[in-house]
Simulated scan of single mutants.
Amino acid sequence: MVGHIDNKSLLSPSLSLSLSLSSHRQTMPSAGAVALHSSLCFSCQKPSSHSISQQPNTHVGDKPRSLLQKHPLYSATHSRLSFQFKEKILCLEIMGVDAGKAMSQNPELRTATMESIESIISFLQSKGIHQKDLARIFGMCPKILTSNIKTELNPVFDFLSQDLKVPDQSFRKVINKCPRLLTSSVRDQLKPALFFLQRLGFMDLAALAYQDPILLVSNVENTLIPKLQYLENLGLSKNEARGMVLRCPSLFTFSIENNFKLKFEYFSGEMGRKLEELKEFPQYFAFSLENRIKPRHMEVVQSGINNLPLSVMLKSTDEEFRELINSNVGR
């Protein structure tokens, strides 16, 4: 596959190279990969206060070309690809990022220089992000690789520090929890979401930062408000709906069509439960309908148990639930 390049590959050289890399990953010696990663891409050491651009000897472009050209994947890829392009994709792949997927999701990455990518990496490491975190972060949000440090990334860390009161040493924990923070506009997304959530009653900044930062990257008008309105449409008051999301913030992450509607129909129809139980146990929507709710409800019905609290039926472990059922069989 590597030796043959068709016309489609000419239109998407990054994908072609990515496929070649993927097919050779298992045969690449781990020691050689580590050495190539260290030599070509960037130092594994935490960056100093000087930027990479001030240290020419750390530039990928300044390394002897022969190092990369001797790599078995280099000559096997399309000859028309530039050294710099091959170098960029190879370094991304060795770092653990699917280069083809990343460039598909972020076309700007095709023209990004290694120097700009290195500056992003250096900046994130200066904020406490570990090199081992980068594959997952960039894999989830390849847009970060072409972000502007001054106008896009730095404001996010200022927001974490100033608005969420996250100490510098805890940046890594928050970013690993929700890498999308790094691709969100502070002015247009993060601050409006924080303001809305605080008005609802989310006053625990630590909980928002470390447990539910995904709420901060959720669109207020298109995501948060419609879900509140759906709960109100079930017959809940505004305060009751607000109380439910405060008790179970993950409600804001569930789909109305694929979660709320299906589970409420089963709750009110097959189970015949009252709305009051949902107010007391909004976590109901967090359990799988097919794998948890339906099977356990059916067993409860078959066992003849009456008025079993919703929380007991769903929260108990398999062993606890089995003991509960067995203790009531035959009564």
Rank of each mutant, 00 (worst) to 15 (best):
M1N: 13
S9K: 11
L11T: 11
P13M: 08
S14I: 09
L21R: 09
S23G: 10
H37C: 09
S38Q: 14
F42K: 07
F42E: 00
S43G: 04
Q45Y: 08
S53R: 14
Q54F: 03
N57T: 14
T58Q: 12
H59F: 10
R65N: 11
L68A: 08
L73Y: 11
T77D: 11
S79Y: 01
S82M: 06
E87M: 12
K88G: 02
E93H: 10
I94H: 06
G96Q: 08
G96N: 06
V97M: 07
D98H: 00
E108V: 03
T111D: 14
A112K: 02
E118D: 10
E118C: 06
F123L: 01
A135P: 00
L145D: 00
S147E: 07
I149W: 02
T151M: 05
F157G: 00
P167V: 13
D168A: 14
V174T: 01
I175C: 01
K177C: 07
L181E: 04
S184R: 01
S185Y: 07
V186N: 01
V186A: 01
L190Y: 02
K191S: 02
A193S: 10
L197G: 02
L205F: 03
A206R: 07
A207C: 10
Q211C: 07
P213Y: 07
P213C: 02
I214H: 06
V217T: 06
N219R: 05
V220L: 01
L234K: 10
K238M: 15
N239L: 15
E240D: 13
L251R: 03
F252C: 08
N258Q: 11
F260S: 08
F260K: 03
F260Q: 03
K263N: 01
Y266F: 13
F267I: 04
F267H: 06
E270M: 12
P282G: 05
P282W: 05
N291S: 12
R292A: 13
R296S: 01
M298K: 13
E299N: 12
Q302P: 00
S303V: 07
N307M: 03
L308T: 08
P309H: 03
S311D: 15
S311H: 14
L314I: 05
T317M: 00
E319C: 04
N328R: 12
